[in-house]
């Protein structure tokens, strides 16, 4: 009888495993957001009053804070997704997968700061009223 190798019984926490798990988690959060987003934006069909009412709700401080997390999810998922494509389509990509991950994450972090810092300031202003 064959014994299962330990790699099948346990995940091993390499860079690729963490990248994969975070891709999965951010992906599921994003589809959940997409459903809500389509539903919220649908209110524009009701005209200015209906739309501004629902937009007022989703622009309260708690939502402004959550939106920064949303930006983080989008940027991680986007740039890790590009990493996956690069690795799948090039031999060099497979060999340098850790460096590619680092480079993609560097771009994602820079964009997160460019977008996230003004969003956080906007959140603080909303919080102060």
């Amino acid at each position: 009888m064959l014994e299962k190798p330990s790699v099948i019984r346990h995940y091993r926490w390499h860079v690729g495993t963490i990248a994969w798990l975070l891709h999965r988690i951010t992906g599921l959060l994003l589809i959940f957001y997409l459903v809500l987003h389509i539903w919220v934006i649908h209110h524009i069909s009701q005209g200015p009053a209906g739309f501004n009412k629902v937009m007022g709700v989703v622009q309260t401080p708690i939502f402004l804070l959550l939106e920064i997390g949303l930006l983080g999810c989008v940027l991680y998922h986007a740039f890790n997704g590009l990493r996956i494509i690069v690795i799948e389509f090039s031999k060099e990509g497979v060999e340098a997968h850790k460096q590619i991950y680092a480079a993609m994450m560097a771009v994602a972090i820079i964009l997160f700061l460019i977008g996230g810092v003004p969003m956080f300031i906007h959140f603080l202003h909303a919080l102060a009223g």
Binding site: I44, G47, P48, F51, N52, M55, Q59, I114, G115, V117, P118, M119, H122
Partner: peptide, 16 residues
């Protein structure tokens, strides 16, 4: 982004 701002019907509707 990166400037941001509050989204209202007046901002969104003309574009849509």
């Amino acid at each position: 982004l990166p400037k941001g701002g509050t989204l209202t019907y007046a901002v969104v509707a003309p574009r849509l």
